[in-house]
Design a binder for these strands. Structure first.
Lengths: 188, 188
DNA sequence: CGAGGCCTTGACCGCGGTCAATGCCCGTGG
DNA sequence: CCACGGGCATTGACCGCGGTCAAGGCCTCG
């Protein structure tokens, strides 16, 4: 699967300067400190965030426990999909794990831009399809693989995650306890 | 979440007659006998199937075992998402569980139609977004819930599945063994 | 040096998987 | 009409993966 940034780049190149300009006008840069929330539970996700710098995670609470659902690095799109799509309160938090810089695009402004420039619908589609393919793969792992298989898979496909993210979050992301993750790691 | 059929209906109503006509021209009706494959592993998913009648399932093999990933009823869209999007060989089978009638739309013809009528990109987006929301919810269940919670959830949200689909497939769909499912059921 | 965050280690146990036997329903053929 | 076989579900015995709880190790920072 092509990285998302590449798909976006080649798509942006296909756009006319006028549309690019319109896009720039509804995009702003924003900074967050380590620990800050890019999105809080209960609030509507009104912007799509392209990560420019730093790391972040998306998570929610379920029965008093945290579940990390996604880990973000540079060039990733940080957004609570259902909150953004349906403009309803988010179940999820998005939190900066380091100082973070994002380039964010406003939902409402983008909807209006899509009416003016129908080609922009394609942009949403690219992002949705990419995320869907990612989700399918993640579901495949939960459906078919054991805890250690999921870890090994992560080690192989996304070594940068293991190198830079605290084990607590990795365990939660893999759907296993911190203790189990620790035991898996010593066996390797 | 609105049912997909409703989203599609209201979208189709917004289209001009000319575009609707073009859509009809690239859509065909097709029948399958119980047990037939709408899509086989290794083949490219070249059509999107709207279920008109009957039931079907999507599944794949992993280490000699079947994993059912989706159950289809009337008004559902039966398609292997990654195979369709990327036009690459499918890992999944789609199989009729009863005699099935579908209304199918050709991928290539639809791509061409999108060039002619950019509004049609919206159609892809609606379907992708709907499937993504469904996937997120399914992943949530695998991430946070036990076998019996997943079953109870299915019982509540999709009772028609439990009433019409063999337990073997339901177990596989829930990611549990048939024996465990059987034990869960007697406890209720 | 002490406190707190993060990870490791140990003891224990329950959920859910596997294997195998049995039950039940139904279609088919003698 | 009954006998048999096959498909599907139930039940029992067993066990291992992974969760929980609790203690301890090891940083870093004040």
């Amino acid at each position: 699967m092509l990285p998302l940034s590449q798909k976006i780049d080649s798509y942006l190149k296909s756009l006319e300067p006028e549309i690019l300009f319109a896009l720039e006008n509804i995009t702003t840069t924003r900074q967050f400190k380590k620990g800050d929330f890019l999105l809080e539970q209960g609030k509507v996700c009104k912007v799509g965030c392209l990560m420019e710098q730093g790391r972040a995670r998306k998570f929610y609470y379920h029965q008093e426990k945290e579940f990390t659902t996604e880990l973000y690095f540079e060039h990733d799109i940080a957004v609570s999909f259902d909150s953004y799509c349906l403009q309803k309160p988010s179940r999820e938090y998005i939190q900066a794990l380091t100082d973070v810089t994002v380039s964010q695009i406003d939902f409402n402004a983008f909807q209006k831009a899509k009416v003016l420039y129908p080609q922009l619908v394609q942009f949403d589609l690219i992002i949705a399809e990419h995320y869907t393919l990612w989700l399918e793969n993640r579901l495949f792992q939960f459906h078919t693989q054991s805890a250690s298989e999921r870890y090994l898979n992560l080690l192989e496909k996304d070594p940068h995650i293991i190198q830079t993210i605290p084990l607590t979050y990795i365990a939660s992301y893999l759907g296993i306890s911190l203790e189990t993750l620790s035991r898996i790691r010593v066996k390797i």
